[in-house]
Write a protein that binds this DNA or RNA. Structure first.
Length: 750
RNA sequence: UGGGGUAUCGCCAAGCGGUAAGGCACUAGUUUUUGGUACUGGUAUUCGGGGGUUCGAAUCCCUCUACCCCAUCCA
């Protein structure tokens, strides 16, 4: 299978390896306030998929903390979606509302720790007090309430003694936090609402930030996977669990980018807008990206699953092309769907030299699909073909029926056009044709060459069906709202003609209508009297595409984005002085000097190394690059190594005891353990090999083992030098002197 | 504007200092009684821009730019 793991699986594997968790538990935690869409499918596939991959478990949890928006019908829709996709949540569905009593107790605990307080500020004041992204907030005067008073008030809130909005429970964190979410987030609010499960028992309801982390913890979740917009909430998530001091192991939150697909909308608000405005027929309209919509349209769960695994998981906001989804359903149905003939836009053909009627046996699947199945197709003098399959004046490259060009009726005979009958307006109303009796499919001895075989139906035996052709709902790739809607997203054909076996035999519910696309018997509107088929997706159509590209003179704008360089902040006088000294007196290059001079911690560290070794440039390089990294990660003054050790390391490089490459390795070890570089070198035997006599045999071997790459290199692919050097370094555990190796390899391969 | 993220082909996406994976789309050809399928090839001298470190940088350092998220008693 695919060897590359996504970043979430990498995290999970590391956590398993390090023993952080013994078992992997994930959860899919929607709020039951809307119908699931394909974005939910992505989340389902990730959460259940990871649990399956690592022999863990995934809970289905309804995050039902807001009684005013939620309903049990959404719970059912969500359950249905998970089931349809083939996943199993185990014994029962979890509900955050089941944890309300526990959650309440945790809140009381927080109050007792003086980490939460009842705030009685109004809604507007709370907002005002929160400050803004650039200004600090200020704490409410109610934060000073005593623990006893808070306890009393909170209990009375629960009992329903106060009106909505009168009080809230807030965490006592930091009103000046850079992260706005940490400015004393609300934990509980009063709501005198009926909860669809908890009834009227509660007057206070927990907020997401309080309920979610604790629900995860209560369920023993190890990896709490959510979408990117919750990144800021992670601090609160951890604060609550940390402050409450819950037992280890605790769940950890990880975020991924939500799914976007072009030419459609995914947000609850926009979807609702479509449904309520009547632009679509309901939540299961086949044009909608809802699970119900895809289901109604005829998508298979397998195709959605493949799609989700094909698009991968990452942290970059992205917009997936619909064609990727369409490929998945086409690919799935190609292997599964029986082929039948249906005429969407009938044109009558009378075969003048045919008399009587016959029945043709035709397989449901083409030769390249290893499946059995046969149906009978009636054939007679009068048939219908698709209007698009005849042209009086065809363009170049047209393979179908023309006055000069014969065509095969799929599974039947070859015909050619004898006469075109037109109506008063000059539109073609009928074709008189002639067939070749010896050209019958499977018994063809006619030796007539045709360019294509087209679908047809018998005029008297064909059944009339309704076909609903769906196109993308929006004409804009990233639609904003109703204004971008595609007015032609639904085309209903009331009188399409189909071969009778489809209706009488009901061999399957999904068919390929040959040369048209895949269609699905509508699960709701289909009746025996009025059969209805939905178009799932069209076939790839390279002829149609070719026509378009001929008419459309391709014009690519091909504008390359221009990058504007912003202004660099000016150096302070002190920094400028330092910069001058570094460049002029010590001979550092501008960039390194700049880096050092602008960072006080770095320059201090650098100054310190200078006192122990007189090698300003080499020291500066390692401080500005390697030390800078450590300093960035650790921030504090908790570096495990000191300036003297850096000098020691640089001295070894200067004396060519170790290579730069090895030095990096040593540095890493040093940063981790604080060991002396000389000791690390001794322990691991890292002294570099510069003796050509030792290196040459290795090079010879590698050259002998990689004749292809040698040839490529000699052909001019100079990048491969790195490959050879890399191989030598690899076989010597990085100890070979790369400079020496480089020159030796170059010489050898000349 | 403070903080948190992200940037690799037209669209997704691997890659974590040593030859720029893969899928979709596109394209050329072979097979074909579906202009489908299948098969074979072609598609990034370059990783948002500019510098630096290194024998060697998509990967490390500096810097700039663009986009996304955060100031609901929603989740």
């Amino acid at each position: 299978m695919s060897k590359s793991k996504d970043f979430l699986r990498t995290i999970v594997e590391n956590d398993l390896k390090s023993g952080k968790y013994k078992e992997i538990v994930t959860r899919f935690p929607p709020e039951p306030n809307g119908f699931p869409h394909i974005g939910h499918a992505k989340s389902i596939v990730i959460n259940f998929g990871i649990a399956n991959d690592y022999q863990g478990h995934c809970n289905l949890r309804m995050d039902d903390t807001n009684p005013t928006t939620e309903d049990t019908k959404y719970v059912e829709a969500l359950k249905d979606a998970v089931e349809w996709l083939g996943f199993n949540w185990g014994k029962s569905v979890c509900f955050t509302s089941d944890y309300f009593p526990k959650l309440y107790d945790y809140a009381v605990e927080l109050i007792k720790m003086d980490k939460a307080y009842v705030d009685s500020l109004g809604e507007d004041e709370i907002r005002e007090y929160r400050g803004s992204v650039t200004e600090d907030g200020k704490r409410s005067k109610y934060a000073k309430r005593s623990i006893e008073e808070n306890l009393d008030l909170f209990e009375r809130m629960k009992k329903g003694e106060f009106a909505e909005g009168e009080h809230v429970l807030r965490a006592k964190i930091d009103m000046c936090a850079d992260n706005m979410k940490m400015r004393d987030p609300l934990l509980y609010r009063i709501k005198h609402a009926h909860h669809f499960r908890a009834g009227d028992e509660w007057s206070v309801y927990p907020m997401y930030d309080f309920a979610h982390c604790l629900s995860d913890y209560i369920e023993g979740v190890s990896h709490s996977i959510c979408t990117l917009e919750f990144e800021n909430n992670r601090d609160v998530y951890n604060w609550v669990l940390e402050t409450l001091g819950v037992e280890l192991p605790r769940p950890n939150q990880h975020e991924f980018a939500r799914l976007n697909i072009n030419y459609t909308v995914m947000s609850k608000r926009k979807l609702l807008e479509l449904v309520e405005s009547g632009q679509v027929s309901g939540w299961d309209d086949p044009r909608l990206p809802t699970i119900a919509g895809y289901k109604r349209r005829g998508y298979t769960p397998e195709s959605i699953l493949t799609f989700c695994s094909q698009i991968g998981v990452a942290k970059a906001n992205s917009m997936v092309d619909v064609s990727q989804l369409e490929f998945c359903i086409r690919d799935d149905l190609n292997k599964k769907a029986p082929r039948v003939m249906c005429i969407l836009d009938p044109l009558k053909i009378t075969i003048e030299n045919y008399e009587g009627r016959e029945t043709i046996n035709a397989p449901y699947y083409p030769d390249d699909i290893a499946k059995d199945g046969l149906r009978e197709i009636p054939f007679s003098k009068e048939i219908y073909i698709d209007r698009g399959d005849f042209m009086e004046q065809p363009p170049k490259g047209y393979y179908r029926l023309t006055p000069e060009q014969p065509v095969r009726l799929k599974h039947a005979y070859i015909i050619s056009c004898k006469e075109i009958i037109k109506d008063a307006n000059g539109n073609i109303s009928e074709i008189k044709a002639e067939y070749y009796p010896e050209s019958k499919s499977g018994f063809d001895t006619s030796d007539i060459k045709v360019k294509s075989a087209i679908q047809w139906v018998d005029a008297t035996q064909a059944k009339t069906i309704e076909v609903r052709l769906y196109d993308r709902l929006f004409k804009d790739e990233a639609p904003d709202g109703l204004k971008d809607i595609n007015p032609n997203s639904l085309q209903v054909i009331k009188n399409a003609l189909i071969e009778p076996a489809v209706i009488t035999e009901k061999f399957d519910e999904r068919f390929q209508f040959e040369r048209e696309g895949y269609f699905y018997a509508d699960p709701i509107d289909y009746t025996d009297e009025n059969p209805v088929f939905n178009k799932i997706v069209g076939l790839k159509d390279s002829w149609n595409k070719k026509k378009k590209t001929i008419s459309n003179t391709s014009n690519k704008p091909q504008t390359k984005k221009v990058q504007i360089d912003g202004e660099v902040v000016a150096m302070s006088n002190k920094q400028q002085a330092l910069f001058n000294r570094y460049t002029v007196n010590l001979g550092l290059n501008n960039e390194v000097a700049n880096t050092l001079a602008r960072d006080e911690k770095l320059s201090n560290f650098y100054e310190e190394t200078l006192t122990t070794l007189n090698s300003p440039v080499a020291l500066a390089n390692i401080v500005a690059n390697e030390v800078a990294r450590e300093l960035k990660q650790i921030q504090k003054d908790t570096l495990k190594f000191n300036a003297k050790q850096i000098s020691e390391l640089v001295k070894m490089i200067d004396n060519e005891i170790v290579s730069n490459k090895i030095a990096k390795q040593i540095f890493e070890q040093m940063a981790k353990t604080g060991e002396n570089p000389t000791k690390i070198v001794e322990d691991k035997g890292l002294i570099q090999i510069s003796d050509p006599a030792k290196i040459l045999p290795i090079i010879d071997e590698i050259i002998a083992n990689n004749p292809d790459n040698v040839a490529k290199f000699k052909a001019g692919n100079k990048k491969l030098l790195g490959f050879f050097v890399g191989q030598v370094l690899k076989t010597t555990d990085g100890k070979a002197n790369p400079k020496v190796v480089n020159s030796l390899v170059t010489k050898k391969l000349k």
